[in-house]
């Protein structure tokens, strides 16, 4: 199926650039062109189909669904809906206010807010194409579990006072859910493909480029020693480094893949990826508008610790 991309890469590398097919540079350029074109193509197709599914779950509907669940079921539902509801960090505040205002418990709201950025269509496409279905599925399930656990802990801690007072005073207007027909859904999906691909293509290129450099030049012995399975502190270090880094999954995944080929353990790599997507400085600054610093600290700690847990579990079992 990917023969076409192989041929395209051949054409550009050997005919257009005139590089030697036996040389190291020719090899790297070929790999780079093949990977970027293939991933951008797959992304476009997958985003299209996932957007069709997503068009059935606008946040208003998610809110309605969630207000009828409590306790564990609520957390599980919130985390699962976090996977399919369209979300961008710029909407996290209106979503937060909408949920809390309609009476959804704080912890359940957080289950949603934690899973949503960790598991998204772009990350899944990259994971499935670069690592295969096994690691992709592991990531998907752990992302959902982190959301459930994180939300439950925040619920138990009873942080309701740590939400800015004004949030509780808002009473939002009842908004209707737009009725969509098939052609609307297709239009929506097309617009999503255009919007997401035009936003992420540069990160795909940078990520794969950096990945290629790591493949070629990073010292395997050093990495395996410091970030391999045998260093118990590596997961914690990966998460601490990953939290302030603001990156999307697209840029991170090819780098992580390259690091793994150099001996970095799977759990360590997964934790790093989750930390960069789940927690970031810009997202915290946005959330600060609705929650107080103490709850932000709790949020970062709870999610950070759960991600570290995931990392250790995988280093242990795989």
């Amino acid at each position: 199926m990917f023969l076409l991309f192989e041929k395209l890469a051949d054409l550009i590398t050997y005919n257009f650039f005139g590089l030697d097919s036996a040389g190291r540079l020719g090899d790297s350029v070929h790999f780079f062109i093949y990977d970027t074109t293939k991933i951008i193509f797959l992304l476009s197709i997958m985003i299209f189909f996932i957007s069709i599914i997503r068009s059935y779950f606008p946040p208003e509907k998610t809110k309605k669904l969630l207000s009828s669940y409590r306790k564990i079921t609520g957390h599980v539902m919130a985390s699962l809906l976090g996977v399919v509801t369209p979300f961008c960090s710029c909407s996290s505040v209106p979503i937060f206010i909408g949920f809390v205002e309609s009476g959804i418990p704080l912890g359940i709201t957080f289950s949603f807010l934690i899973t949503s950025p960790i598991v998204n269509e772009v990350a899944l496409v990259m994971l499935y194409t670069i690592f295969g279905w096994k690691i992709g599925t592991i990531y998907l399930i752990s992302g959902i579990v982190v959301g459930i656990v994180g939300g439950i802990v925040i619920e138990i801690l009873g942080m309701e006072k740590q939400v800015e007072e004004y949030v509780y005073q808002i009473s939002a207007e009842e908004s209707e859910i737009e009725k969509l027909n098939w052609s609307d859904r297709i239009d929506f999906a097309r617009a999503e493909v255009k919007e997401i691909v035009s936003r992420v293509w540069k990160y795909v290129i940078i990520g794969i480029g950096l990945g290629a450099v790591i493949h070629g030049y990073a010292p395997a012995k050093l990495l395996a020693e410091y970030a391999g399975v045998n260093n118990p502190l590596s997961v914690i270090a990966a998460v601490i480094v990953g939290i302030p880094l603001y990156s999307n999954a697209v840029g991170t995944i090819p780098i992580v893949e390259a690091l793994m080929s150099k001996g970095v353990a799977l759990g360590t790599a997964l934790s790093f990826m989750m930390a960069t997507t789940a927690l970031s400085l810009p997202a915290m600054i946005i959330l600060r508008r609705v929650i107080k610093p103490k709850l932000i600290a709790v949020f970062v700690t709870v999610v950070g610790v759960s991600i570290i847990g995931v990392g250790y579990m995988f280093n242990l079992i795989i």
Binding site: P58, P59, P94, I97, G98, E101, I170, S175, F188, A191
Partner: peptide, 28 residues
Amino acid sequence: DMKEIAMAGIMSTPAIGINGKVKIKGRV
């Protein structure tokens, strides 16, 4: 303002309203 956006019952941006009534949300 996020607060005003939320008060209008909008949970996904951007959105457009005509004469104070929200018509289309979550897409351009």
